[in-house]
Design a protein around this nucleic acid. Structure first.
Lengths: 340, 340
DNA sequence: TTGTATGCGTTATCAC
DNA sequence: GTGATAACGCATACAA
């Protein structure tokens, strides 16, 4: 994030180069801009002079002449993490912090900075602004929805990726949360549970559909009744969701939660009511946050490599040449602890 | 974060305004730039014309003429959270995520963006770059050290604040962790504990000195032996620190940890060894992370309003007029739960 | 192929 | 006070 070109005035200008090369400014300009119609010898002389003088074109003057805006030099600019959500408080999710940190780390290797921005569910104007800003090297959409993907500013395409759902134009990077759900639910099934409820995430979040759907499929495949309650990733939602489940389906003997925070919320309700975990009700989460290991009982949960996913997304933006070879789908591993 | 001025060409130029106002470009320019020597009637005419045409000076042309770089328009630019630390992984601390999110929320109200950057302990060059970048509206230093504060780029002064220690030139915002330490330690003392150890934070972090010092003062004031082990905010450090404490001072009956993660690391060691918490050893933490309430036993800990602190720091940067009236020191409240 | 001349939109320096 | 006019540094039709 140097932006050197803006402030430090170049020590030499085009006319200096031209004079040293023994040509006119026009010729020097032509050579330097790579325009056609320059003799090899003129080109060599200009290039040598430019090299010698360590010439750096003044981006402001160039922008004025060209009629364009000032463009960032290679190695400048920033990557912005654009988090889609119902309210600005979405930014407070620990998930976001992890992603931003990971992006910051890889961006630094490319001389880029990181930005964090909230985008409302109908926030195409925010994306429009990002698209208009030449200093935005790339945008990482987080938790985006279909609508946003559909009317994405066209000039953003090619420098936007998504963590969550994608589209033909925007490559997506995500955890295999369908697989994670399957691992957790089948584990619960194999350990003899049948009355399995799911404390799901926000229903508007499309990338979660794989998770809920897999649960639904598994339950109907086994011929058992599905018990799904939506939530919002908070532990409060886990608590109210658990309460609702207990009320509607008193015989429930296992719960799969969309994330660890929700699982912990559920567990707190359970222990408060004297329900034993896992003896009476088994609980499985998803994310494998640090506390999952420290809690007692230890939370059985699926890993969620948020940092790796975000870093990969950032790399795809900053190093387009390797983008195709990057993993797009990240596996989750079920970590068996005590709650299930 | 509009940066509109860069890309969208102004629809009207200075000459248009001048023509409509019936004056020369020179006069129009003088009026618009606020230079001296303009007649009231000329000023009125120009202002009216500019208003009518919705005139916006082209920043690129202005920059070229003025010889400066392109400056952000009022309401543009960004605030960067500069986290000081030994390695880039410092960025992964949940504390950082919370701070960035909070800053992002208030920055948005001012049309500013947020950036996140890592600054090494000897990272004056990184700060130099930030100072040179006119698009940086302000810098929020996090966990800074004295050295960095001493050779801060001079032109950064006035748009840099600190979360942690400050200096005469850079206002600091921080939690009262001395008070937090006192509340926790005296609580332990009042509940009959005497052999109180402290699992401290990184020794290089100056803003933590108030915390450790208060513990030391309290212990020596009571005439008891101090037992302090440094760590690094991780739960791993809590585990190894707890092990060390147990080894060196087997009769320890209470522990105050610099943060909740460290406290949980200590507790896991304790429970693994069959030591009962709080019966045998009481544990108090600091931060009051969400998990502190959900863990069982619930963690007794001091609140740490990171979000409010960061938001206030951002406000001080973006609204200098109210900066003096902003709180600089944020109280911590001891939340009594089960571990102490 | 090369050089000349002019434009990009503003600010600053002059005379007036 | 005001209006020409020359920078600012570069790009590019156009003429040579």
């Amino acid at each position: 994030m140097a932006f050197r070109a803006f402030t430090d005035r170049a020590d030499s200008k085009l006319s200096d180069v031209a004079r040293l090369a023994g040509v006119s400014r026009s010729t020097a300009s032509r050579v330097l801009t790579g325009a056609a119609g320059t003799s090899p010898q003129a080109r060599a002389a200009v290039l040598a002079a430019a090299e010698k003088l360590d010439y750096q074109a003044n981006p402001v003057a160039r922008a004025l002449a060209i009629g364009s805006g000032v463009l960032p030099a290679p190695g400048e600019g920033r990557v912005v993490v654009a988090v889609v959500g119902a309210s600005r408080e979405t930014l407070r999710d620990p998930y976001v912090g992890t992603a931003v940190a990971a992006v910051a780390e890889v961006a630094e290797d490319f001389g880029a900075g990181v930005g964090l921005e909230w985008v409302s569910l109908a926030g195409s104007s925010a994306l429009r602004r990002l698209a208009d800003d030449p200093w935005v090297r790339g945008v990482i959409l987080v938790n985006t929805v279909e609508e946003l993907l559909l009317d994405l500013p066209l000039d953003l395409i090619g420098r936007v990726v998504s963590i969550g759902i994608g589209s033909p134009e925007v490559p997506s990077f995500d955890v295999d949360n369908g697989g994670a759900a399957e691992a957790a639910v089948t584990h619960l099934m194999h350990s003899g549970r049948r009355e399995i409820a799911m404390l799901a995430g926000p229903s508007w979040l499309p990338c979660l559909r794989r998770q809920s759907q897999r649960y639904l499929d598994l339950m109907s495949g086994a011929g058992w009744e599905a018990r799904l309650v939506p939530g919002d990733f908070t532990s409060a939602a886990g608590a109210t969701g658990m309460t609702a489940v207990l009320h509607r389906w008193p015989r429930t003997d296992a719960v799969f939660a969309t994330c660890d925070a929700t699982a912990f919320g559920a567990i707190s309700v359970l222990t408060h009511r004297g329900v034993r975990v896992p003896d009476d009700i088994a609980v499985a989460g998803f994310d494998d946050v640090p506390f999952a290991a420290q809690a007692s009982p230890g939370l059985t949960t699926g890993t969620h490599p948020v940092g790796r996913i975000a870093a990969t997304a950032a790399l795809a933006l900053l190093e387009p040449t390797v983008a195709d070879r990057l993993p797009r789908f990240f596996g989750s591993e079920l970590v068996l602890r005590e709650t299930a």
